[in-house]
Design a protein around this nucleic acid. Sequence first.
DNA 1: GCAAATTCCTAAAGGCTTTAGGTTCGAGGA
DNA 2: TCCTCGAACCTAAAGCCTTTAGGAATTTGC
Lengths: 192, 192
Amino acid sequence: MARAGVSVEGLVRAAAELADEVGFEQVTVSALARRFDVTVASLYSHIKNADELRVRLAALALTELADRASDALAGRAGKDALVAFATAYRDYAKEHPGRYTAARLRIDASSPAAAPALRHTALMRAILREYKLPETEQVHAVRLLGSAFHGFASLETSGAFAHSGDVDASWARALDALHAALLNWPRPLTPQ
Amino acid sequence: MARAGVSVEGLVRAAAELADEVGFEQVTVSALARRFDVTVASLYSHIKNADELRVRLAALALTELADRASDALAGRAGKDALVAFATAYRDYAKEHPGRYTAARLRIDASSPAAAPALRHTALMRAILREYKLPETEQVHAVRLLGSAFHGFASLETSGAFAHSGDVDASWARALDALHAALLNWPRPLTPQ
DNA sequence: GCAAATTCCTAAAGGCTTTAGGTTCGAGGA
DNA sequence: TCCTCGAACCTAAAGCCTTTAGGAATTTGC
């Protein structure tokens, strides 16, 4: 019988497609085996277990997302950069809901997904450069931006905004408001 | 044999405890049956299927969360109200991570969880009253607040903020920034 | 006290994950 | 060319989960 030519990379790519088609939770080793027309047990020659598959999928998604964000940022600064980054983020979540869900998996420092996760922080800090926040405030600003972007993308893809109003307008206004917030970043009280 | 005295309410309460202990994804009909010392099939006299259990759990969580938020809001206005609401939200997510995850389930209008979900919107709009935004802007502001609160809670409980910095300070700064954003809400461009 | 409804049970089918152990393919050395 | 060895694949089986069917026991209410 001819071999199916399965490889770890191929598996992860197929898992990514499957995730976007049927949802991240439905990505199973069984479904992948069906897709490659191979028995389930065969896949265990390539991956250790179902969890490893999910972590690798997360790493793929985080890398793709960081690549897009990085491209969006090229040659831009200030509000332009903020909007481009955020929109790359939101668009990715809409185009690839399964991958996006995978990207939000709990990741610990030893995971192969840890490195791409760090790129995201670095990119956000690059956006902040133009806003000239004090060094100690940057982590807070990164967290606010991360929360707002992730929260919006997450609520939008989960259908929470589906029942009223113009979501694109909400997005534009949110970015205006965040831009303004960064310009007038609240000064910390005198340190104690 | 004496009856175990299972009821739908009891099941959902136990499911909520289980969710907080071992994570929402691990809430299974089997685990519940074990907890009640009853066979799995018995539970199907009380619930239609595993999905109904999850939806009921979501409804419980949304109701509890709305109750807390409502209490937090009582007698407060302006930034006070904003901070109290947001903190009730974040604290609930930290104390009850499993329930909180359930609350973020995709909910459609016919679901028994739809009604408590609407309370949340109403409460957020109450916060906005003091900020006197134009009627058409309120939906956008609600979405920004919802995104930021959910994003922060979600990233925090999933460990994304675990590796550096003072998370409470980030939270305080985020609320300061959102308060300022509401005070200076970006005017929409002249309508076309 | 008895009938009906409810609660609980056994049994079984079907899906997913993982491990154990055996077979076949294909590439590189003798 | 042949043969060997590792990788890729297979069958089999165990364990857990969901769901349905049909039957027994308990509780409730007339």
